[in-house]
Simulated scan of single mutants.
Amino acid sequence: MLYLIAEYLGFPGVFNLFRYLSFRSGGAIATALLIGLIIGPRFIGWLRVRQGKGQPIRSDGPQSHLAKRGTPTMGGLMILTSLTLAILLWMDLSNPFDWACLFVTLGFGSIGFLDDYDKVKKASTAGVSGKVRLLAEFVIAGLASWLIIRQTGTELYVPFFSGVSIDLGYFYIIFAAFTIVAFGNAVNLTDGLDGLATMPVIIASMAFMVIVYLAGNVKFADYLGIPHVPGAGDLAIFCGAMMGAGLAFLWFNAPPAAVFMGDTGSLALGGALGTIAVVAHHEIVLGIIGGLFVVEAMSVIIQVFFYKRTGKRVFKMAPIHHHFEQLGWSEPTVVIRFWIIAFVLALAGLSTLKLR
Rank of each mutant, 00 (worst) to 15 (best):
M1W: 12
Y3W: 15
Y3T: 02
E7I: 00
P12M: 09
F15A: 13
L21D: 04
S25Q: 13
A32P: 03
L33F: 15
F43Q: 09
V49W: 01
S59N: 02
D60R: 09
Q63G: 01
S64T: 14
G70M: 06
I79K: 06
W90F: 14
M91V: 08
D92A: 07
W99V: 06
C101P: 05
G107I: 03
G107W: 02
G109N: 11
V128A: 01
V128L: 10
G130E: 02
A144H: 08
I149S: 04
Y157T: 05
V158A: 04
P159L: 02
G163N: 07
L168P: 03
T179Q: 11
N188S: 03
L189W: 02
G192F: 04
P200V: 06
V201G: 08
Y213P: 02
A215F: 11
K219V: 15
I226A: 07
L235A: 05
M242R: 13
G244R: 11
A245K: 05
A254T: 12
A258W: 00
V259S: 04
G265Y: 06
L267P: 00
V279W: 09
A280I: 06
A297I: 09
A297N: 06
M298V: 12
V300E: 01
I302A: 11
Y307G: 08
G311I: 15
F315N: 01
F315V: 01
K316M: 13
Q326P: 00
S330D: 10
F338M: 05
I340P: 03
L350I: 04
L355Y: 10
